[in-house]
Every structure is written in structure tokens, then in C-alpha cells.
Amino acid sequence: MLTRDFVGGVASIAIGAVYLFFAYQLRTSALDDSMGPGGLPRVYGWLLIGLGAILTIQAIVSRRMAVAGATTDEKGEWDGQGRKLLFAAGLLAIGVGYIFLVETLGYLISVAVLLLVTALYLGAGNKGRVLSVAVLGAIFLWVMFVIVLGVRMPSGLLASLSL
């Protein structure tokens, strides 16, 4: 029953319902135009729910037809997805870690750590090479963004060195 389309349809209904809830909370004012700030968001919310329902029904019907024809392999559709999700979540965690550290450690240090940890996580074997890529990559990005483009990146721990 849990085909990708079914999950997609149910997720769309859920997202649409949450969005619609907040769309109906939008305050109206006497200065609003007739449609108001909530007008189109409500239309979008209902459309998302409606389309989600259609996708769910489509998924159920095609599943029933497939079962009648005995041609599906539902289990195969989700095989290995849990492991994939776990690996992807690891990279996501590295990114979230960077967000929390960048302003404390500063750009130069945190981007070097990011390069090092990400490359190791993704399977880089040669430790010496990883370290040199992390250091040189961080310096390259720092020169590109901070020196050449003049972007104000956080200095963090290196603030006293104006880096």
C-alpha cells in the first residue's frame, strides 16, 4: 500500500493542512484589498490538499490494479532506503554542526573542519591528503570570499588576527 505516490500524496495533504491552518490565522486589516494577504495562500493550501488527495487516490487505484495483475514488488521499492536516509542524515548533521560553529570558531577554521570532516565522512582514505585538501581548500575559499569579493565572514577565534 505504501507506494511512493501514496506517501507523496499523504505528505502533500499534511503540508497543505498545516499551511492552510496558518493561512487562516493571518490577520486582516481595514486597509487590505478585497483578497487580502490570506487570499491566495488559502487557494494554494486547498489546491495542495486537493491534489494530494488525487495523488493518494491514484496511488491506491494503481496499486489495486497492479495487485489484480500481480505485477508489483512493493518491498523492492523501499529496499535500502533506511540505510540511505541514515547516510544522508550524517551529512546533514555535519552541515547543521557547521551552522552552529561558524560564528564561534570563525569562517577560516570552521570551513577547514567542514572540509576535513565531510571528506572523511564521504570515504576519503588518505589522511594526509584529506588534511592538505582541508587546509588549502579553506585558505582558497577564504581568499576568494573575504579578500577578493570582500564578503564579511565571521572571524570568531581569529578575530584578533583580523582573519
Binding site: 572540509l115 571528506a119 572523511l120 575559499l141 570570499f145
Partner: peptide, 16 residues
Amino acid sequence: RPRPYLNAFIFALILS
């Protein structure tokens, strides 16, 4: 370049 290094660099580049 090898994928782990390339992807690490792309990650750092897009975050920057």
C-alpha cells in the same frame, strides 16, 4: 577530482 574531496569542497562552497 575524487568524489569525497569534490563533494566536500562543493559543500563548503555552497555554504560559503
